[in-house]
Amino acid sequence: MAGKKTLTFAIMDPPYESGRSTTAFRLIDIAVKRGYDVNVFAYEGAVCLPFAKQQAHPNAVHGREAEEENHPLPKDWVAALIKSAATNGGKLDWVNCGLCVDERGVAEAIEGVRRGTPADLWKLAEGSDNTLVIGTR
């Protein structure tokens, strides 16, 4: 496809800890809506973002039951972005650092997420028009 771009994002933050994760998801959302191919290399705590066992909950302080609360689960964000990429003619390749996964015991990722190594980050970046690293602080 003429003008099709490939972008890679390297992210590090775990779910629910930082605004950086949300901003990364917003950037990915824009890119996949354009039909770009997007790679994500999830490093350290970011490997928990697509963890399949995340569960929504009610929130008594907000006074809402679970369904009404519609608590955001980052695994749903990842799934929505993978779907959006396919719908728009691109692909979201989400690579979880395997050793980071093992350390954290979060091997059960949602469908579409694969396990990788630092070599994958290098290959993905080499094959991309650009790479943005969003490091943790």
């Binding site: 972008l7 824009i30 890119a31 028009d129 650009n130």
Partner: peptide
């Protein structure tokens, strides 16, 4: 930001 990333 995505524009500028895509522009390299």
């Amino acid at each position: 930001v995505v524009d500028q990333l895509a522009d390299g």
